[in-house]
Computed example of a mutant assay.
Amino acid sequence: MINWNFLQELCSIPGVSGEEKGVRDRIFCELQPFEDVSLHITPLGCLAAKKKGKQRAAVSVLLCAPMDEPGFLVSRICDDGTVKLTPVGSISGQALCGRPVTVCTADGELPGVLGAKPVHLLTAEERGKPVPAGDLYLDIGALNKEEAGRAVCPGDRVVFASPWNLSADMAFGRSLASRAACAALTALLSRDLDFDLTAAFTAQGETGGGGLMTVVHDIQPDVVICVGGVKASLPDEEDGGCMLGKGPSVHFMDSRMIYDSRLFRGVLETARRLGIPCQERTAVNGNGSAGRAAAQTGARTLALGIPVRYPGVPVSMMAKQDLESTVRLLEAVCREIAGGSF
């Protein structure tokens, strides 16, 4: 059901907000062979895919997944050859010093390492605390400003250089929170569907959801379902909102709005009826991207989360069965909504 090699490719492609082209092109190539899928790239860089089903949908559904990932922007080159960075998106500063990164320049990719203020220069208050992501710098081995300036420029994106691994039950990799959602939508679009369906792979999700808002405004759907990774409970955490291995997480609200109650109940009931693993998210958080989408057109809205441990750090972790269950649930829910059941 899930093409894990495809997901590995997506996770390996740099795609900090505003530079999602590589990810978009790979998804485009994956969907292009399907004659019943029409593709359109928006001016902001989102990819809209319209799938022709066996019947016309009575209620139009739009599925959205972000393509971008958290990372850094090169902001300033210092006299000593180090490079100041600006964080993009939700990045945890825990244990990032010394991490390898990849700098995406106009001339190609360049290796580097994240650095921070030396221990002997830290104040008593700073010692023992994680280094804030905004205090990290990039070291590419340049000896002075001129040498560094020949290699990097302000605005270059920087991503973690992280490994990819699959075990029997888990996937480990960079940017799983967004790319797993993209893989789920791609898998769904490759199936024969009962009703027409539109999916959007959106840009700039880490910086306010601008791509998602423009796509919803352009397409004007009746229902919007936003799919993306959501923080899962850690082993010693009593209530982190959702758990690995229990299926996708259905949200009843986020930080900006309460979701459509009929959709919320309908998704849970569909999952129970079909025996698809699914869980209610017990924590109220999130950046409100789905809420902003609804505000654009008045569409009924819901968010469906794929549980991911350690989002915003170099390597995240996801249960393989949760992604498989997400695809199954999305197919069933879209069929019910498009047919007018809820």
Rank of each mutant, 00 (worst) to 15 (best):
R26I: 05
R26D: 02
R26G: 04
R26T: 12
I27W: 02
I27N: 01
I27K: 06
I27E: 00
I27M: 07
F28P: 00
F28K: 04
F28A: 01
C29Q: 14
C29W: 15
C29G: 11
C29Y: 08
E30W: 06
E30V: 04
L31V: 00
L31I: 00
L31P: 00
L31W: 01
L31H: 01
Q32M: 14
Q32K: 15
P33F: 06
P33M: 08
P33T: 04
P33V: 00
F34A: 11
F34R: 12
E35N: 13
E35W: 10
E35G: 08
E35C: 05
E35M: 07
D36Q: 15
D36L: 13
D36E: 14
D36H: 15
V37K: 01
V37T: 00
V37A: 01
S38V: 07
S38Y: 01
S38A: 12
S38T: 11
L39P: 00
L39F: 00
L39V: 01
L39I: 01
H40E: 15
H40N: 14
H40Y: 15
H40D: 12
H40I: 04
H40C: 11
I41M: 08
I41Y: 03
I41C: 05
T42Y: 13
T42N: 12
T42C: 08
T42Q: 09
P43A: 07
L44Y: 15
L44C: 10
L44W: 12
C46M: 06
A48D: 03
A48F: 08
A48P: 02
A49P: 05
K50L: 02
K51S: 05
K51I: 06
K51A: 02
K52S: 07
K52G: 04
G53N: 04
G53I: 07
G53Y: 07
K54W: 08
K54M: 11
Q55F: 13
Q55N: 14
Q55L: 15
Q55H: 15
Q55A: 15
Q55R: 15
R56F: 09
R56Y: 10
R56E: 13
R56H: 12
A57P: 09
A57C: 09
A57L: 08
A58L: 10
A58T: 04
A58F: 05
A58I: 02
A58K: 03
A58W: 13
V59E: 09
V59R: 10
V59I: 10
V61R: 11
V61M: 06
V61C: 09
V61P: 03
V61T: 14
L62S: 03
L62K: 06
L62M: 06
L63F: 09
L63W: 07
L63P: 06
L63N: 08
C64G: 13
C64V: 12
C64E: 14
C64K: 12
C64W: 14
C64R: 14
C64N: 15
C64P: 14
A65G: 08
A65S: 10
A65Q: 08
A65P: 04
A65R: 10
A65Y: 08
P66W: 12
P66C: 12
P66R: 13
M67K: 03
M67G: 00
M67E: 02
D68G: 05
D68T: 08
